[in-house]
């Protein structure tokens, strides 16, 4: 407790990786909004034309899955930072 316990470089990199992982998953906001908009339009489309419900649902799911990709890239970067630790070269 004499204040001599320093933070090593590896510790600093680990801490910053954790913060970076947290920042990377903010990418999830975009796909969330996008999927919500897609679902909203799909709902209104079903309201106008209930007969085409199956077609609309599959189109919506396809579009949402494609929109999801950007969020998943953020998730992947967070996972890499947390578990593969590419910045720690030892």
């Amino acid at each position: 407790m004499d204040g001599s316990t320093g933070i090593s470089g590896a510790d600093l990199i680990k801490a910053c990786s954790a913060i970076g992982a947290g920042l990377a998953v903010i990418a999830g906001i975009g796909p969330g909004v996008g999927q919500g908009i897609a679902a909203g339009y799909a709902a209104s489309a079903v309201g106008r034309n209930p007969g085409a419900k199956g077609e609309i649902t599959s189109t919506m799911l396809l579009g949402q899955a494609v929109a999801e990709t950007t969020g998943l890239y953020g998730l992947l970067i967070a996972m890499l930072l947390l578990f593969v630790k590419p910045l720690l070269n030892d």
């Binding site: 899955a65 494609v66 999801e68 990709t69 998943l72 890239y73 992947l76 996972m79």
Partner: peptide
């Protein structure tokens, strides 16, 4: 790349 990463990341996120 996007095709494979989409499938991989989705399944991986469920597993995690």
């Amino acid at each position: 790349i996007s095709l494979s990463l989409r499938l991989f990341a989705n399944v991986l996120s469920g597993t995690v």
